[in-house]
């Protein structure tokens, strides 16, 4: 605690309150993880006995396998495409003329400001028109629409700190523009690229409402979880949730250790 904030009591109250808020954020997930290891046929806390029963169930069920498979497939298609489209746009914005840059930037991140329910409704409509609803041809572009803005932002932020003279130096030594970008610029802005890729993957993997409109027979993981949850609350839902949590936690940890979100520690100095 720094000086000048008065007596310790208000500060202690602040600490206790904040810890309670963090408990509120974390405890439900912790409980979920613990419950997923129950060996009983019902959910209770704490579970009377522990085991991997429901994980076996999840891994052997074709419904869950199909849903996970489709979600992973979509995310794997979306992530590189999102990275390419977003990075190209970020370069264009960075290297284009100053005039109009602001408005073009606004265009490139505009899907972010629209509620996903409205975006989903619109995309469902055009997908019906083109007869591609319930196919990857609809799922992938739909997810790209919400992931590309994140790449534009994260790569754009990295490009802002990149010194173009480095690239120009490489070119004056005889490298082509492509070679200079590939060997100089891209490695330097790598944190932004990694952040963009991880954001794209997680957002696509977790996307619900747009896919909910588009999907009829195909089920992504969030859709399958939703319909299971609406039908019955079984321990298998806790197990699949824990698995999802593990995947996103691993990706988040990668992101944090790359220092992108926390500003490379700059923010805490």
């Amino acid at each position: 605690m720094r000086e000048g904030y008065g007596s310790p009591w208000p500060h202690r109250a602040l600490v206790v309150f904040s810890l309670l808020v963090i408990f509120f954020l974390v405890a439900p997930l912790a409980i979920l993880v613990i419950q997923s290891f129950t060996n009983e046929s019902y959910l209770s806390f704490p579970p009377p006995s522990f085991g991997f029963r429901w994980y076996r169930e999840v891994f052997t069920s074709s419904d869950w396998r199909d849903a996970v498979g489709l979600s992973v497939l979509i995310a794997i298609l979306v992530t590189p495409l999102s990275l390419i489209l977003g990075t190209l746009a970020a370069f264009g914005l960075d290297r284009g003329p100053m005039r109009g840059r602001q408005s073009l930037y606004a265009v490139m991140i505009s899907p972010m400001v629209l509620p996903h329910i409205v975006l989903g409704l619109g995309i469902f409509r055009i997908a019906l028109q083109l007869n591609i609803e319930d196919t990857l041809l609809a799922f992938v572009p739909a997810h790209l629409t919400i992931t590309v803005p994140f790449v534009v932002i994260s790569v754009g932020a990295s490009l802002q700190t990149f010194n173009v003279t480095l690239e120009e130096a490489a070119m004056s030594l005889g490298a082509s523009r492509w070679r200079a970008v590939w060997h100089i610029t891209l490695p330097v802005i790598r944190p932004g690229l990694i952040a963009g890729a991880i954001f794209s993957f997680i957002i696509s993997f977790d996307e619900f409402i747009i896919t909910f409109f588009l999907a009829t027979y195909e089920q992504t993981l969030p859709l399958e979880m939703f319909s299971t949850l609406m039908f019955q609350v079984k321990p298998s839902i806790a197990a699949i949730s824990t698995l999802t949590l593990a995947v996103t936690a691993a990706l988040t940890a990668m992101l944090m250790f790359r220092g992108q979100i926390l500003g490379g520690g700059r923010i805490v100095k």
Partner: peptide, 14 residues
């Protein structure tokens, strides 16, 4: 970055 539906599941269980 944590799945929204996973967090909802947690609240249903509670």
């Amino acid at each position: 970055l944590t799945s929204i539906i996973v967090r909802n599941v947690a609240w249903v269980l509670i």
